[in-house]
Design a protein around this nucleic acid. Sequence first.
DNA 1: CTGTTAGCGCATTCAC
DNA 2: GTGAATGCGCTAACAG
Lengths: 341, 341
Amino acid sequence: MVRARKTRLADVAARAGVSRTTASYILNGRSGEMRLSDDAVARVRAAAVELDYRPNRAARSLRTSQTRTVGLVSDSVASGHFASRMLTGASAAARESDHVLLIGETDGDPLVERLLVEQMLDQGVDGIVYATLRHREVAVPAALRQTRTVLLNCADPASGLPAVVPDEHGGGRRAADLVAGVAGPVVVVGDDHEQGTHAGAMRLAGLEEQLAARGREVADVLRCDWSVAGAREAVTSWWGTGVRNGALVCMNDRVAMGVYQALTAREAAIPGAFAVVSFDGSELATWLTPALTSVALPFAELGATAVRLLLDPPPGASRTVRLEMPVVHGGSVPASAAVTR
Amino acid sequence: MVRARKTRLADVAARAGVSRTTASYILNGRSGEMRLSDDAVARVRAAAVELDYRPNRAARSLRTSQTRTVGLVSDSVASGHFASRMLTGASAAARESDHVLLIGETDGDPLVERLLVEQMLDQGVDGIVYATLRHREVAVPAALRQTRTVLLNCADPASGLPAVVPDEHGGGRRAADLVAGVAGPVVVVGDDHEQGTHAGAMRLAGLEEQLAARGREVADVLRCDWSVAGAREAVTSWWGTGVRNGALVCMNDRVAMGVYQALTAREAAIPGAFAVVSFDGSELATWLTPALTSVALPFAELGATAVRLLLDPPPGASRTVRLEMPVVHGGSVPASAAVTR
DNA sequence: CTGTTAGCGCATTCAC
DNA sequence: GTGAATGCGCTAACAG
């Protein structure tokens, strides 16, 4: 662990033969404000490179009260299998803007949440992204009012805070397009208000709306929690209704896995007899056979967008940004069934 | 966004009627070094609370050149479905010690890696955890030498840096114990040197060793990559050998999923005809039917341990810490088969 | 036992 | 065009 003696701005200035002020202006790209000789500018730049000068962030922060740091506090995003990609996107976007990402998880504990937010505030973060594992409504802690905040994968109607969320409703419409051409009834698997209202209800609304536009409808909604076992059981008991073809729209990829289990146990062909589509677009979709066609949650993009929104807020009003849910095509829908808009 | 005017140490001192020095000592818990009147101590503490005093981190950092910040740079830990829990553990451990966790991903790009490390160094992190998605060997960037570093889920033999890794070998032995009592051959599914040598080779070594200790052996190793499709195909073609019972030890949970697919397609009962165990202990294991018995990668613990090691290094030599891989019991092994050590 | 003083490294105002 | 002077808030010598 060899820690080189740090070179300070003064060193650079000395080597370039200018004052610290001059060096500071040049290095901060504000040389235009001072009409400096091109030569001086070049000398300073060269000196900075030669000395491998890196500004001391603490000193700069002390002066400017900015830290080039953004915090991301979530309930349990890092623990999620797939939602953790919000962190990937967020940290990449932060780095793009020469910022660094601080993370912390509350695991849903309001006390920890308060502590964590205050810790980040203490650190002097330039802003906080408040994220949730599931797309849902939240009531953000009051302390967040002390800094710029962007909501990620959640909304707080009371606060009017800007938010970045997946366009669940549009995703529902896409699912509709995927199955509109399928023979037999369209059946939804998964409770519509599981896991907070947003995802389920909005997907279902979009699905129904677009199906209606195509002269079709949801024939049935199999209520079950969004789990493999729940879905498997729901489909298994639904099997008794005697339907032997159609489209099963699953509320998420795990539900689809349960559907696959129930269907294959009964030797019902996918996509021959039943088309299956779902929401999430997680890696699980690619593990199933045939690969599952899924309307994807663009987690990395969501994370990146939230950080960008935090760091360079667009001039207009602070609005909710809805990101498209792209379709990840697998082989669980007959090629002929998809309808182009 | 209401940002309250910050109260400074001077304010606290003034309110308590003492000097800044005194207040500083007291608030830093070093009042013992100064033999202060109990009354003064109490007054300062009270003032700090009343004024909701929070030290300015930037100023403190400038003075002490410590930031109470630790960086975690990885190839793509946040993108992994399951490995991202290292972040959960790491950030929790950081918070325990009143530190904050900075994260960044390189996606395997050496250039990004250098940049990221330097960015963190610029930020003045108190140390860096260098993590990888897969347990493997690495060659850390030279810049890491400038700060305390702990390796997480990887090893760099050349550097001699302390590391925290799962005890793959011990995990292999546990897998052996799980299947030692099963009738029929023990077959391994998954190439032993896939994804870096560590995981595969060590698991296999531990498995063989413990199996030998029980008078058993690995009958076959089905070579395939660690994927659902690869495993499914491997088992499907192995089916031709005519074996109709035994134990299948899968190199990870995805491999096990492929094994399940191949087996159920042939109506081979799990665990009736075949016991299946695997490594990872990811959520996928719980989604399969029957739930998969898996030797788990303790990701959250790994992350937490790495941060603790970084923050309070034990006196002795810097050694490699191997964390136990606990068994997550499912229903894929006949109850009678497990052998207690 | 307590207060005074001097920087930490940088950005910035103001004379020169 | 440039350089001296100031202060961000805190810690830690050093006097008293």
